[in-house]
């Protein structure tokens, strides 16, 4: 099963197995990791699952217009900002790493 590495707002680092077809958000929620709030449950409606994608960019689709728009005014946005509900894990994923900001509410 692909592993995703989460660096949390408190600086701790967690490696989590995330099944294919699930999102980086799902992996965080399932393990009750702080920082990814995910109020809308993954429907790209709320921007409370904002992460910085540090490694593994090539495994994921480009952000949709909607995701881009949600991120444009998200707090602390950076060039590698993504909504983790839109980062779907697939078979080939390896060494995916995200930093979770402390600003998701």
């Amino acid at each position: 099963m692909p592993k995703v590495t989460y660096e949390l707002p408190d600086g701790t680092v967690h490696d989590v197995d995330v099944p294919c077809g699930q999102s980086v958000m799902d992996g965080s929620v399932r393990n009750n990791l702080p920082g990814i709030v995910a109020e809308c449950g993954g429907s790209c409606s709320c921007a409370t699952c904002h992460v910085f994608l540090e490694a593994g960019e090539s495994f994921f689709d480009e952000p949709t217009d909607e995701e881009r728009e949600l991120l444009e005014f998200a707090e602390g946005v950076r060039p590698n900002s993504r909504l983790s509900c839109q980062l779907i894990i697939s078979d080939g994923c390896a060494a995916v790493r995200v930093t979770v900001p402390g600003t998701n509410g």
Binding site: A47, E66, E69, L70, E72, F73, A74
Partner: peptide, 8 residues
């Protein structure tokens, strides 16, 4: 369908 306006 104007998420940027909402967030701003």
């Amino acid at each position: 369908n104007r998420a940027a306006e909402f967030m701003a």
